[in-house]
Write a protein that binds this DNA or RNA. Structure first.
Lengths: 333, 333
DNA sequence: GAGAGAATTCGAAGCGCTTCGATACCGTGC
DNA sequence: GCACGGTATCGAAGCGCTTCGAATTCTCTC
């Protein structure tokens, strides 16, 4: 492995000059710069990460804490992760993966100066990691919005706005009997701030038009969707507009509507919130508000980088939802 | 941040003594060790990762290259990743995430001494990364088995054995007309060594009993499963035993069998190969050979660590399949 | 009780890089 | 021709740790 000293010798300059060429922190004359760059190329020189970290007190690594507990929506997780890694690379940073959802892991990585910043995914309303994150001596960005955001940097989809948007879409099409098929009961109860925010957005928007919404929790499976839909058609046959916030159940719901003689969109209008590329794989495509996992990951990195430059106050960034129509909303029969 | 010097002062010993207490590379007397350990605890000392890496030429980091291209089975990917990270931590290593499936990324991470070893997932038969991996100056472990394994360390499920096991299970139950619903046509064609190995295992085992197998490629969707099954029942109504190697289509297949009046297992015996926790979520549970993602990830780490100790020759480790019965195989009607 | 040998601990060099102050060199203006 | 302000480059210190050889202390043995 070539060292910076080898480069300096090859280019006939001092060690520090090479360093300044690489970092750009001091002006270097055109000819010298070129000689150095040529030497770097010819020796295939890459600075030793550890040495850089030691001398500069910067590791150029972001730690990313990913949830691996069962029942999590892996597709969206992967999208976040991909977004974070891609964005990190554009800032010349790498990503270190943490999985144990253990406060100590965060502290360890910080104390060892393994990472300059931390991004934590899937933050719950009352997340046990919050105190540590607040006390951390380096930037932390949360994906998800806890109950108390003071002193924290958070980013997420604006689920309330998504709920309002989905509902408004149905109401604008003329629907007056609307239901929300949401997350599982257990998710509503335990954590899942986003499920609650989403529901509140739906309910609020409906209330503005003087409407009530039937809210049905739903198991995150194909069968769960079919079952809940069957129940809905029995209990509330007058419902003509459906907001679905349950990815895994969506196919089951759509297929069950077909079988029940209430096909989308003539028999039932449907708007879904889901990750990208799900809506298109269905028998009948569905108007979708996609969770922009890639964008959220990127924004999280940007926030972390900004805070690395200059520490800022707490801040919550909610990404506005976008609805992609697929012809699944029609006026009620 | 406390340094090793602070610890030394607090414990009244020299710097190197502290280092030896931590690494255990030289004997330290009981009393001194205790004083040092106490100081470490009280100062909450964690060694600076960069300094350690610089001085010891070991970063204690494993680079993990994860595929993020669309159409990949995210569930199994996540299981691998979780297995790798968990195992790495037991070896006191962290995991650095690489996503760009770019040979240069591997070289960069190696040249910068960011990682001691590399684990590459989802290796194709003729993977473009193979030359670089062979030439790498540090251990590389592949998850997946390429065409030419010379000089490489590989680990994967023994898909051929899985195919044989699934088929034998059906044959032992008395089935003589067997079909394999496999990966998508595109997967068979392009990469996906595992799909081919699996198919060959099925065909070989059937041939031993003088049977032929109908092989049907299948889109990895619920609808894809339903559609292929419908076609199967039309073209080959005599088939009574099914091997399914297509996770996403499995639910569609099982449900379609139900609707066609050929419920599992009385109307059709089914054995599936899939990730854990899929088989149980079905309307009718299905005998499953689960891909032990967690184990494979762990083995990959173990192989990398072993090669870090002492470089060895190329080696391919195939994990034996296990079948978990769920009552989906019965004698033919 | 002295010397040999083993058991511990210490000191210093060095890993490869960044960064600060200092030096060398340039053209200007008077 | 000389002091001056810039600009481009150099040198050396230091980041926090590991590791090797040397020094010290302890334990026996005769």
């Amino acid at each position: 492995m070539a060292t910076i000293g080898d480069v300096a010798r090859a280019a006939g300059v001092s060690l520090s000059t090479v360093s300044y060429v690489i970092s750009g922190k001091r002006p270097i004359s055109q000819p010298t710069r070129e000689r150095v760059e040529r030497a770097i190329r010819e020796l295939a020189f890459h600075p030793h990460a550890g040495a850089q970290a030691l001398a500069s007190a910067r590791s150029n690594v972001i730690a990313l804490m990913v949830p691996f507990r069962p029942g999590i929506n892996v597709a969206i997780i992967m999208e976040f992760v991909a977004g974070v890694v891609t964005a990190a690379r554009t800032f010349d940073h790498d990503v270190l993966l943490l999985t144990e959802e253990d406060v100590q892991e965060i502290d360890r990585v910080a104390a060892r100066s393994l990472a300059d910043a931390v991004i934590v995914m899937d933050v719950e309303s009352e997340d046990p990691r919050l105190p540590s994150l607040r006390a951390l001596d380096r930037p932390a960005v949360l994906i998800g919005v806890p109950e108390d955001t003071s002193g924290l940097a958070c980013v997420d989809l604006d689920f309330a706005a998504a709920g309002r948007l989905a509902t408004r879409t149905l109401i604008d099409a003329g629907h007056t009997h609307i239901a929300l098929i949401g997350a599982s009961r257990e998710r509503f109860a335990r954590r899942a701030n986003y499920a609650v925010r989403m529901r509140d957005g739906v309910v609020e928007q409906a209330a503005r038009s003087g409407l009530e919404v039937h809210v049905l929790p739903c198991d995150p499976t194909y069968a769960g969707g079919s079952d809940v839909l069957a129940r809905l058609l029995t209990d509330h046959p007058d419902v003509t507009g459906l907001v679905v916030h349950n990815e895994a159940a969506l196919a089951g719901i759509v297929d069950a509507l077909d079988r029940a003689g209430r096909p989308v969109p003539s028999g039932m209008s449907v708007v879904a919130i889901n990750v990208a590329n799900i809506a298109e794989g269905l028998r009948r495509p569905v108007d979708s508000i996609t969770v922009p996992g890639h964008d959220i990951g990127r924004i999280a990195v940007q926030m972390a980088m900004a805070r690395l430059e200059q520490d800022g106050p707490g801040e919550t960034r909610l990404v506005a939802p976008t609805l992609t129509p697929h012809g699944s909303v029609a006026p009620p029969a």
